[in-house]
Computed example of a mutant assay.
Amino acid sequence: MGKLGDMANKAKEMAKGHPDQADKGVAGAERMVDERTGDKYDAQTDKAADAVRRSYGSDGGHGTTQH
């Protein structure tokens, strides 16, 4: 596996061990993208954030993203 894949696996393992902190990071990244794009891609960022949360076994504590 390449360097990027190794880094992604390490990040996923860290997120599994600290899901609350990972959820905060995902929410912050989603919020930043939404703010910078004027919510133009809100549906896509919601889907992406949900996919990331599923990758480490979290639903963000509420099943859907919040804005």
Rank of each mutant, 00 (worst) to 15 (best):
T65D: 07
R36D: 13
R53P: 06
E13F: 04
E13R: 01
H18D: 13
T37A: 00
G38V: 09
A8E: 09
S55L: 08
Q21V: 11
N9W: 14
G57Q: 04
Q66P: 09
N9F: 14
G60H: 00
K12H: 02
K12L: 05
K12F: 09
Q44R: 02
K24C: 05
H67F: 01
G2M: 00
R54V: 12
A51Q: 03
A49V: 05
D20R: 05
M32V: 05
G38F: 04
V33Y: 05
R36P: 11
M32Y: 08
M7Q: 10
H18W: 01
V26N: 10
T37G: 01
A49S: 02
G63R: 05
L4V: 15
E13T: 05
P19Y: 03
A22S: 04
D50M: 14
R54W: 10
K47H: 11
A27V: 06
G38E: 04
M32N: 11
T64V: 07
G5M: 12
N9S: 15
A8W: 12
Y56M: 02
G17N: 03
M7V: 10
A27N: 10
G28V: 05
D34M: 08
A43L: 02
M14Y: 07
E35V: 03
K3M: 15
M1E: 12
Q44M: 06
D34H: 12
G2C: 10
G63C: 00
T45W: 03
Q66L: 06
N9K: 12
D59V: 01
Y56W: 06
E35T: 10
K10M: 09
A8Y: 04
D6L: 14
A22V: 00
Q44F: 05
D46L: 04
G28W: 08
D50H: 07
M14F: 04
G17E: 08
G17I: 13
M1V: 11
M32G: 07
D50V: 15
G28E: 06
V26G: 01
